[in-house]
Write a protein that binds this DNA or RNA. Structure first.
Ligand SMILES: [Mn+2]
Ligand SMILES: [Mn+2]
Ligand SMILES: [Zn+2]
Ligand SMILES: [Zn+2]
Lengths: 138, 138
DNA sequence: AGAGATCGTGCAACAGAAGTGCATTTAATG
DNA sequence: CATTAAATGCACTTCTGTTGCACGATCTCT
């Protein structure tokens, strides 16, 4: 049993061939991926399968969905120990307007925000747009 | 010349009948609206016209686009004196998971975020999800 | 190992939002 | 009024997300 198989198994997700492939693909990327990205990465990939795989992964806390403002859902693997299902890992995300890549900044948590009376916060999403470190010649 | 006509004129937008209607509609709402919301509000409304009107409004700084995480673009009138075109009015937005409405919290600015080396921030989007004041029985 | 249940995958089709091209109408300007 | 530019309406396309259903694979339990 490989590491990936163990990881999926731990999260009660049956490690099928396709799921392992998708997991590997995402693990090899530094940035968040869209459904279409995965679709294009594999010649023989069924959009529906990918869609449902990502949904399963998300429900089981293997990936988290990211809304980077492009109106296209992105996904990224959760860090080990991430508890984003229960909103305990609200890190921010960065979307580069040049290379169009979205990355997790897992070390940067979303600061606590005081809301007006009557408002109850349950989740938060903070996306910074700009130029990423790869695109800025630093 | 009405107030609305003056407002549009000040922003170099010709105050046509449709534009005035759309402006009035948005001004009467407390929450941000989607293209479809406007479409449904008027029996005789052409989606394309609304689409391009909102785009014009946005370019001229009359409305700002909001990404609330639903993957449906919302729009809200800019406050008087708002300079969101040049990213000077980065207030946060609240999306209610119960009534599905998105509102501007114009008094609550997005806090400054320190980014890793190489990252250059140009824009920011902070959306809090939860229960709004109307839906919570406060 | 075999029967039955459950889960995953593939195919087709649909819904909704966003966007474009072009013809026509409307408004501004002299 | 004639000319020109801007706004609108209509048709059509693309893309993402989503669901239904049938088939195949896998697990369980005897
Ligand atoms: Mn992330
Ligand atoms: Mn706003
Ligand atoms: Zn970049
Ligand atoms: Zn509400």
């Amino acid at each position: 049993m490989t590491e990936i198989e163990k990881t999926l198994d731990n999260k009660s997700v049956r490690p099928t061939a396709m799921r392992i492939l998708i997991y590997k693909f995402m693990a090899g990327k530094q940035n968040a991926v869209a459904l279409t990205d995965i679709e294009n990465a594999f010649e023989k990939a069924e959009r529906t399968t990918l869609y449902r795989t990502l949904k399963t992964f998300e429900e089981k806390g293997i990936v988290h969905q990211i809304d980077d403002g492009t109106n296209i859902s992105k996904f990224a693997l959760c860090e080990p120990g991430c508890n984003c299902e229960i909103d305990q890992d609200l890190h921010l995300h960065f979307h580069c307007s040049q290379c169009d890549k979205t990355v997790c900044l897992t070390e940067h948590k979303i600061p606590h925000i005081n809301l007006p009376a009557g408002y109850i916060a349950e989740d938060a999403n903070l996306v910074i747009k700009g130029i990423c470190d790869s695109c800025s010649d630093h």
